[in-house]
C-alpha cells in the first residue's frame, strides 16, 4: 500500500477512536448526576412511582454498558433521546425528542457559520499573506496592532459595540435575528448580518495572525532564499516555491479557526437571540436538561474533531516526503 494511503487510514482510525472516547465521556454525563435528579426534573410533587417510572424509562436500572450501546445505536440512527423538559410530577409527559429540537436549529447554526466562513476565510488569508509579504511595513504593523487588540476582546463586547453603532445609533441592521424555516434567503442573510459580522471580526483577527506567522515561518526557509538567489521574482517565489509547501500550515489555520467558530457561535447566538444550537444548549444547561446538552455537545465535538481531521489529512496528502517515499 502506498504510504500516504496508510497514513491517511491511520489518521482516520485515530479520529474514529477519538470520537468513540468523546461519546463515552458525553454519555457518562448522565451517570454523574446526583441520585435525586429524577425528583428535581419532575418536581417535588412527583410520587415515587412516577420517579421510578422515569428512571426505568432512562434505563437506569440497566447496566451502564447496555445503556451506552443502546444510546450510541440510537445516536447512529439520529435518535438523541428525549428532552427532560415538559415532564410533570403528575407523570404526564409532553416532552419532545431531542432530535426534533436540534434539527431545525442546527440548520440555522450551519447557515450562520457558513455565512461567516465564506467572508472570513478569504479575507483573513488575504490579510495574513499580504502582511507577511510586506513584513514590518506600516500596513503590517497597523494590521498587527488592530488584530492583537481584537483577539483580546470578548465576543459579546464586539457584539454590543456593533449593536450600539449599527442598530441603535445608526439603525441599519436588525438587532435581533428572528429567522425561521420559511425565511427567504436574502432576508435570512440580512437578519443574520449582525451575528455574522461579529463572528467575522473575531475570527479574522485570529486567523490573520496565524496565517501571517505560518507564512513568515515558511519564507524563512533556506530554499526560499535559494530561490531568490536563482533570480526568481517575488511572484514566482510565492507561487512556485512557497505555496506548494504552504497547504499544510494553511489548512491547519483554517480548521483551527472554523473549530473556534463552532464555539464562538454559542455566545453570539445568545446575544442576538439567534435560534441556533448554541442558544439551545445554553438554555438546556440552565435548566439542566441533560439529554439536550448531550445532543448539542455531541454535535459540536464531532464537528470539531472532523475539522481537525480534515486539516491533518490535507497536511498528509500535500507532504512531498510522504507523496514521494524513498
Amino acid at each position: 500500500m502506498h504510504p500516504i494511503v496508510k497514513t491517511v487510514f491511520q489518521r482516520l482510525g485515530l479520529g474514529v477512536v477519538t470520537l468513540f472516547i468523546v461519546s463515552l465521556i458525553i454519555f457518562a454525563a448522565i451517570e454523574l448526576l446526583p441520585g435525586d435528579f429524577g425528583q428535581a426534573v419532575l418536581g417535588q410533587a412527583a410520587t415515587e412511582e412516577t420517579v421510578a417510572a422515569f428512571r426505568r424509562e432512562l434505563g437506569l436500572d440497566q447496566p451502564a454498558v447496555w445503556r451506552y450501546v443502546d444510546w450510541i445505536a440510537g445516536v447512529a440512527q439520529g435518535d438523541l433521546g428525549t428532552s427532560f423538559s415538559g415532564r410533570a410530577s403528575s407523570g404526564v409527559d409532553r416532552s419532545r425528542p431531542v432530535i426534533d429540537l436540534i434539527a431545525p436549529r442546527l440548520e440555522n447554526t450551519l447557515f450562520l457559520a457558513g455565512l461567516t466562513a465564506v467572508v472570513a476565510v478569504p479575507l483573513a488569508l488575504f490579510l495574513g499573506i499580504s502582511a507577511a509579504l510586506y513584513r514590518n511595513s506600516i500596513y503590517d504593523r497597523t494590521v498587527n496592532a488592530l488584530t492583537l487588540t481584537t483577539i483580546s476582546f470578548p465576543e459579546f463586547f464586539v457584539a454590543y459595540v456593533l449593536i450600539l453603532c449599527l442598530t441603535s445609533l445608526w439603525p441599519i441592521f436588525p438587532s435581533l435575528s428572528n429567522i425561521s424555516a420559511d425565511t427567504e434567503f436574502a432576508e435570512r442573510v440580512y437578519r443574520s448580518a449582525m451575528p455574522a459580522l461579529t463572528l467575522t471580526l473575531v475570527i479574522v483577527a485570529h486567523m490573520m495572525r496565524m496565517t501571517r506567522a505560518a507564512i513568515i515561518n515558511l519564507l524563512a526557509s533556506p530554499y526560499i532564499q535559494m530561490a531568490r538567489l536563482t533570480g526568481a521574482s517575488q511572484r514566482e517565489v510565492i507561487l512556485k516555491h512557497a505555496l506548494p509547501n504552504a497547504w499544510a500550515p494553511i489548512a491547519t489555520v483554517i480548521a483551527f479557526n472554523l473549530a473556534y467558530l463552532v464555539v464562538g457561535v454559542v455566545v453570539v447566538e445568545v446575544v442576538f437571540v439567534y435560534p441556533g444550537v448554541g442558544q439551545l444548549m445554553v438554555d438546556a444547561v440552565s435548566s439542566r436538561d441533560i439529554p439536550v446538552v448531550q445532543g448539542c455537545a455531541l454535535i459540536f465535538a464531532a464537528t470539531y474533531i472532523v475539522l481537525n481531521l480534515v486539516a491533518d489529512i490535507v497536511g498528509i496528502v500535500t507532504n512531498p516526503k510522504l507523496l514521494h517515499p524513498k
Binding site: V266, M281, F300
Partner: peptide
C-alpha cells in the same frame, strides 16, 4: 478534542 467551552457547559 472537545472544544473547552462546550465541555465546560456539559460539566456545569
Amino acid at each position: 478534542a472537545i472544544p473547552s467551552l462546550i465541555f465546560a457547559l456539559v460539566l456545569l
